[in-house]
Design a binder for these strands. Structure first.
Length: 474
DNA sequence: ATGTCC
């Protein structure tokens, strides 16, 4: 396919529809942010996604788009369920329900400073992280796992890990409906039993941050945020359990392609109709894995609360918890009529506008917080959903990688990077030197530019900028 | 992302 991009506005580029695409591609970015890394095939992937059966409107890419498995990371695509639309595990990603939780402390940076070292040491010693390894909550067995997979953060709070108010500030109230724990295989269950309440590795982290800049005072206040305030941002997902669920169902769907006579430009887009046995099986297992991810972040939020209580004597209120790797059944207006859709967001955050009935009462007038973590040592952002977002109410999810992990390892030494960050006043508690080097800020796009482009494209509005004070690295 | 290969 000829991948010519046509600028429709300074923040919106169009990939013209051509055979076998069923819809055009739309990339939200500035010219500077468009994928240009050697070997980045993400624009080709945007076009590939546009060939999926039942896809409607367009195959979208957010400003942080980069190459991924099948779908690009930063990709959004919706399929019409009643017109044979498909669901694809590659459109969710291996880390099912990977997402971000932001908590705000009743504390400003000045009062934290003398206790910062103690706080970071406490977090460093109590937050489980790294590949494999254990978590904060060891489940007793498959029976308890089934309850957690069905209940997500609701189950965790019911067992004393948090307060009911937390659930008001979680996407879907902390529990994605439609979970089918029986679709999560024994191997996935085995991997997950000891990992509830763990960060994992890669780009996952727990960061202590400060509200650095406020763009919209009224919305910030509705979110419980003010200038100079200390916050905690947690970025993690469904660990080995979600990975295993994706692996198992990609295999099943690859075999289902023949049954449903689906031809694809890339086998990594393996999929099945939403309304089919393999489609329903994946969505049930995916929702269960999503609930694992939500319980995981709930447990880590509690670990942060304990550390703040003991080291600083401060409380943490949940601002919001939202996933950026999901496939959700939603109704949107397409060509003037409501249509039942399966919306894939892979490295893309749902962004509900003010007035949406899914919002909790105290956020109804403001809109949904959109949590955008930056790369290590750089800023993070809170944005808010806006009216008129035609990417099925979706926004960016982070900075977006430009160097491969391998490439980063050739350019950066972890020990040196830690020194650079500490010299800039950012405390670092690493898990491995290698992992630290792979996550060097140089390996990512400029998150300030990504956030600005997201606002420029009308996907969401800036609310606050957060700067890092200390990072507990996965 | 991931017991970075069953």
């Amino acid at each position: 396919m000829d991948l010519t991009l046509v600028a429709e506005s300074p923040y919106r580029f169009r990939l013209e529809q051509q055979d076998p695409m069923r819809v055009p591609g739309v990339v939200f970015a500035t010219r500077e942010l468009l994928p240009q890394a050697a070997g980045d095939k993400s624009l080709e992937q945007v076009a590939n996604v546009a060939t999926l059966p039942g896809v409607v409107r367009a195959s979208f890419a957010m400003p942080d788009v980069h190459w991924g498995y099948g779908f690009p990371i930063g990709g959004v695509a919706a399929t019409d369920i009643d017109a044979g639309g498909v669901v694809s595990p590659g459109g969710v990603g291996f880390d099912i329900s990977c997402g971000v939780r932001l908590l705000a402390a009743d504390l400003d940076t000045g009062r934290l400073a003398p206790r910062m070292r103690q706080l970071m040491d406490t977090l460093g010693h109590t937050v489980p992280r790294g590949t494999g390894r254990g978590g904060l909550w060891h489940l007793t067995g498959p029976g308890q796992m089934a309850e957690l997979l069905a209940g997500g953060a609701v189950y965790a709070v019911g067992r004393g890990h948090g307060v009911p108010r937390d659930l008001d500030r979680c996407e879907d109230g902390g529990r994605l409906p439609g979970a089918d724990p029986s679709g999560v295989g024994p191997r996935a269950v085995e991997r997950g039993l000891g990992q509830v309440g763990s960060l994992g590795a890669g780009n996952h982290f727990l960061e202590v941050q400060a509200v650095d800049r406020v763009y919209d005072e009224e919305t910030a206040a509705a979110f419980g945020l003010r200038a100079g305030q200390v916050c905690v941002m947690i970025h993690t997902g469904s660990r080995g359990l979600g990975h295993q669920v994706c692996t198992d169902h990609v295999r099943a769907m690859d075999q289902a392609l023949r049954t449903y006579r689906i031809s694809l430009p890339d086998r990594q887009l393996a999929c099945a109709p939403v309304d089919s046995p393999p489609g329903r099986a994946y969505l049930g297992a995916m929702a269960a894995a999503a609930n694992y991810g939500r319980a995981n972040r709930q447990l880590l939020g509690q670990a942060a609360r304990r550390a703040f209580a003991s080291a600083v004597g401060a409380d943490l209120e949940l601002v919001y918890d939202v996933s950026h790797n999901t496939a959700k059944l939603e109704t949107h207006e397409v060509d003037g009529a409501p249509v039942r859709l399966c919306v894939h967001r892979k490295g893309a955050t749902r962004a509900l506008p003010p007035g949406d009935p899914e919002l909790p009462e105290d956020l109804a007038a403001a809109g949904q917080p959109v949590l955008v973590p930056g790369s290590m040592g750089t800023a993070s952002y809170v944005l808010v959903g806006t009216v008129g977002n035609d990417a099925f109410r979706s926004a960016c999810h982070g900075a977006g990688r430009v160097w491969s992990r391998h490439q980063a390892l050739r350019q950066v030494r972890g020990e040196e990077l830690r020194g650079e960050l500490e010299a800039r006043g950012i405390a670092v508690r690493p898990s491995s030197w290698r992992g630290l080097a792979e996550e060097a800020p140089r390996a990512y796009k400029d998150v300030d530019a990504v956030a600005a482009a997201t606002e420029g494209a009308g996907l969401a509005r800036l609310v606050v900028r957060l700067r890092p004070l200390g990072v507990v690295k996965g």
